[in-house]
């Protein structure tokens, strides 16, 4: 069967592999790949380090399969601090309500950016990584970067067909709460019904079941993804059964009844 093997960067980014639908290509898709409508790249990242399983959202170690890596001190529930000297999380600096610049917290970087150099330069090689458990000193370990690209494409021998789509939300309504930081769906604000309050604002997390209760109003920086799954939030079942009723339309930042 005739075929083309993309060689330079434009060929790699424009070529559509045999059998893939148009939406398999970032240029012709919604291309939110975290988790995404067309494919979920997190499933690739899960195995980016040989011998351990990780989750992109929290730089989180899910499992350690290789005793040699465990022997270096890597354990489940650790978080990755940096890889070959490249930070995987950064301090977020911004103005507080008084207008002073300060560290507002730390944020995990998206791996598609943060690991780009590592994957490009070190696939198949071993790099020094640092891991941390809350409250403890970081440890260092040498891990191998899985070589999952071949000629600019995912290597079917490493990433079998179907991998990219196996974890897509089904039914699709799950997407409303699937994303780690409330930015899906992108056109939905994650902070609604906001009112001035003292020097700042108070409002509701848009995933709250009851967004009329003034007692549940929080300041903007209290509305975080930490509360995903709390009992007072809209559940997957709620979304599957009556997503329109629960989510409503938000117009001008406010719930429409």
């Amino acid at each position: 069967m005739p075929s083309l093997q993309p060689t330079n960067l434009t060929a790699q980014s424009l070529y559509r592999g045999r059998g893939n639908p148009p939406s398999a290509h970032p240029i012709t898709s919604i291309s939110n790949c975290f988790p995404g409508l067309e494919f979920d790249f997190r499933v690739i990242w899960k195995n980016v380090f040989v011998g351990i399983e990780v989750h992109e959202a929290f730089n989180y170690v899910i499992d350690v399969n290789d005793p040699a890596i465990a022997a270096q001190g890597v354990e489940p529930a650790m978080r990755i601090l940096d890889v070959d000297g490249d930070a995987m999380q950064v301090d977020v600096v911004g103005p507080d309500p008084a207008g002073n610049q300060r560290v507002l917290g730390d944020n995990n970087l998206e791996w598609t950016n943060a690991l780009a150099r590592i994957v490009q330069q070190h696939s198949g090689n071993t790099v020094r990584c640092r891991f941390v458990t809350e409250g403890a000193a970081p440890i260092s370990a040498d891990l191998t970067i899985r070589d999952f690209f071949k000629d600019g494409q995912l290597d079917p021998a490493v990433i079998p067909a179907g991998t990219l789509t196996q974890g897509l939300c089904s039914p699709w309504q799950a997407d409303y709460r699937e994303c780690g930081c409330y930015y899906w769906a992108a056109s939905r604000p994650d902070f609604v019904n906001a009112e001035p309050d003292g020097g700042g604002t108070k409002g509701h997390n848009w995933m709250l079941k009851d967004r009329t209760d003034a007692n549940k109003a929080l300041t903007d920086n209290q509305v975080t993804w930490d509360r995903i799954g709390a009992a007072d939030q809209i559940s997957y079942e709620d979304l599957y059964q009556a997503w329109e009723e629960h989510l409503k339309f938000i117009i001008g930042g406010n719930d429409q009844s």
Partner: peptide, 14 residues
């Protein structure tokens, strides 16, 4: 390929 300045390796048949 001129449009997009894309370079592809091909097999004999292609």
């Amino acid at each position: 390929v001129v449009q997009g300045s894309q370079l592809f390796r091909t097999d004999e048949k292609t």
